[in-house]
Write a protein that binds this DNA or RNA. Sequence first.
DNA 1: AATAACTGTGCAATCGTTGCCGGCAACGAT
DNA 2: ATCGTTGCCGGCAACGATTGCACAGTTATT
Lengths: 335, 335
Amino acid sequence: MFKPVTIKDIAQALNLSTSTVSRALRGGYEISEDTKKLVLDYAEKINFKRNPIALSLKERKSYSIGIIVCEVANVFFSQAIDGIESIAYNKGYHVIISQSHDQYEREVTNIEHLANRSVDGIIISLAAETKNYEHIEKLHAQGLPIVFFDRILESMKTHKVTSNNVQGAFDATEYLIKKGCKKIAHLANAEQLSITAQRKIGYEDALTKYNLPLKEEYIRYCQHGGSRQDEVEQAVISLLSLPDKPDAIFVASDRLSMGCLSALKKHAAENVLVAGFSNSDVVELFSPSLSCVRQPAFEMGRIATEMLISLIEAKYPVEEFETRILDTVFSPTEN
Amino acid sequence: MFKPVTIKDIAQALNLSTSTVSRALRGGYEISEDTKKLVLDYAEKINFKRNPIALSLKERKSYSIGIIVCEVANVFFSQAIDGIESIAYNKGYHVIISQSHDQYEREVTNIEHLANRSVDGIIISLAAETKNYEHIEKLHAQGLPIVFFDRILESMKTHKVTSNNVQGAFDATEYLIKKGCKKIAHLANAEQLSITAQRKIGYEDALTKYNLPLKEEYIRYCQHGGSRQDEVEQAVISLLSLPDKPDAIFVASDRLSMGCLSALKKHAAENVLVAGFSNSDVVELFSPSLSCVRQPAFEMGRIATEMLISLIEAKYPVEEFETRILDTVFSPTEN
DNA sequence: AATAACTGTGCAATCGTTGCCGGCAACGAT
DNA sequence: ATCGTTGCCGGCAACGATTGCACAGTTATT
């Protein structure tokens, strides 16, 4: 049906060899100007496009990078993807996105799928459920460049990008305290995630600074990262039914924030103040309202991609790795 | 750094030819059980993965399909993508997503990028800005299978999937009428989009049925599909400042609905009722509230993908094309 | 017993492109 | 006049997997 034109066609038409055509097209210095022009003009005329698959086979490089995020329907990740694409396309890579939906199994199959498809590298934010990292470590050990962002794997020696989760959590918690709340609960993500630990530290730092007690029963973890609403609702209900009911909640992620607000609304607990991580652009529409910690998602995506491409194109094995930590911005919602 | 195992390695190790290995791996009937088992076991042992790029080159097929949507950070599209992936992965295709951000230029570069990357077919929902379709028609004429969903190009002879936009718009408008509104405005998407025309028909049908006048000044089009908030805000302001100010707005898309609610809130016009297309899963949190028409996004994605793969795998050129129209569901938000 | 049929395997070409080597002609230097 | 250099180009092989055809060896058929 659809037969693309190849350098062979050009060679035949111009009575040259394929090697000559190939070199002329790439501007090889060993080809006379006349021939070069001849080839270039003809290629233009018949709309020649070089076959990237053949090139990939030859160069053992696909010029594509894989992304794994929990879901694209999440403003933080979609902004990060925009950042990733902005760099990748400029450098001639294309981007294959896959979603783990915060499930371990899907993360495993996705990453293997990507590796089999011969991506040149992977940018990943771990699924909430993931506790075992062999699937990643195996590929990394085989030499596949991997960069982490947001939810990172501390133990792996590679580049990483996160935001300043401790500071962000501190800001949000401090805000709640300054609003007069004294019993601040924490709705957290899956316990093994890097961001969970960091955000918890920020939360506790703020409580400590203002001499509020740290109560373990005020903390609820959501192992599925909020992808199951009942999980979030259960957590919120159990907080609300504590004898010493919280007057505010610091929520550790976008997804959880939505779930938390829903649960509060459903159970007529709108008087509980909420602050949490979210990059939502319609936050002013929410009721109950949500004060939020915003992460520089686009920038994180850009940086992660630059790191990945530098790994991919490195001439020698890279030994020195970098962890970039970007600042968050807290924006209160007054009402 | 990273040298994958090839059938050659297997052949060498087992003292067979590559052809034998190849046939054994795909269960060729012409290979003895003994050899087959030998090869299979060894391949398993050294973790052999066949190189999809080599296969693509030979078969002139990449087993990948391209998706173009305006943005992934939109629940409708992200659900559609989930549907697309659910079918694609099952059938051995992988999915490359790209975003037009409702811009014509980006749609053009994205589609060419995909075509150059030799995707086997494309599923597309047009950008709001797109008025010229040559970039798509050219590829289609060259034989690249293309399926439209949501925002379709009526004039192109290929498979299409949409929801019942007329009915959805009718339901939303009728709801507003039954709530007692008599002056219902319509905030519409870019004028040339298929869905814009259809949703306008539904809107007008409802008005007509209930003997309300059709006023052209109650309709505002957003040429950029709401990707620019000022555009939406201008439209809403101009509606609010009409001498005969509307008491309700029927909004034609998810993005526009968010923009519209923001604008209403900002201008303290929360008494204006809003109903519109949206697949948001946190609609109950919004204030002002939004009654919404939901599209079966996941199902639309599934169907579009099945259609596309049937085109890709068709043995003979397909002449008969189908347009599937799926029902929407209206869910009022009472408060 | 001779031929036909079948079984299991290898050879070589193919997909599109590029790297490497080698060839040929024209040129300048000795 | 001979040699070495340079410029320009063609041929071959290779990337990894598949496949039509050929061929050797075995079994079945007449």
